[in-house]
């Protein structure tokens, strides 16, 4: 499996936030994206997730069992700033919905196991809105476990997590990588991973002025 980006450029509003960005990630490899706020970390992850159209360049995903021309976003989990969970539903209902919607094709945990893995078994019956911010984030992480995707795109994954949960999450990412997964994380904190490439975003590579020149 290989996730590669060639000559990516993206803009936010009229501003080019990065340009000519390329990387290749194979099985078990991780890329940590660092940089200050507004430097384009989130934008990069959203481009890879197919949520934003790149201004130039392309993202491809290839490997055994991947038909050519398949969209990379189908192979990605995206964990954004927001948790993608409904406050009105119980945790179990939330996770069950995502499990069924995203489709579990092998290698996925069932909902109880996923809850145990993030250290919060036993409160699956509570409405999601009643949980603390840290607990909510941990269940958002559990969403990545109930359906299998080879690529994890993590945007500030450990925000709102305490040190213990931090370690728990680093362990999860390590296990994902050990199983041959790929991870991209935009983060301030080090995740304590080996075999990591680092990408420093500087932000602002120019106003998209050439369009109008």
């Amino acid at each position: 499996m290989l996730l590669s980006a060639e000559g990516l450029a993206a803009r936010r509003g009229e501003e080019l936030i990065f340009s000519n960005l390329s990387f290749d990630l194979g099985m078990g490899e991780a890329l940590v994206v660092t940089g200050r706020n507004g430097s384009g970390k989130s934008t990069l992850l959203r481009v890879i997730a197919g949520l934003l159209a790149p201004e130039a360049g392309r993202v491809t995903f290839s490997g055994a069992g991947v038909e050519p021309g398949a969209r990379p976003r189908e192979f990605c989990h995206y964990l954004g700033h927001r948790n993608a969970m409904k406050r009105e539903l119980t945790v179990f209902e939330n996770l069950a919905f995502w499990k069924s919607f995203q489709g579990g094709s092998g290698g996925a945990l069932d909902i109880d196991e996923a809850a145990e893995t993030v250290g919060l078994g036993g409160i699956l019956h509570l409405p999601y809105g009643y949980l603390s911010a840290g607990q909510q984030r941990r269940f958002a992480i559990a969403r990545l476990l109930v359906a299998h995707r080879p690529v994890w795109l993590l945007d500030e994954p450990t925000a709102a997590l305490d040190a213990d949960s931090d370690r728990m999450f680093a362990g999860l990412v390590k296990r994902h990588l050990a199983e041959g997964g790929i991870a991209l994380a935009a983060t301030h904190q080090p995740l304590g991973l080996e075999k990591v490439q680092e990408l420093r975003m500087t932000g602002f590579s120019g106003v998209n002025a050439d369009v109008w020149e």
Binding site: A49, Y78, G80, R82, A84, Q102
Partner: peptide, 11 residues
């Protein structure tokens, strides 16, 4: 709440 991103990603 961010669900739209996940809905959009899944074709």
């Amino acid at each position: 709440d961010g669900s739209l991103d996940v809905l959009l990603m899944h074709d």
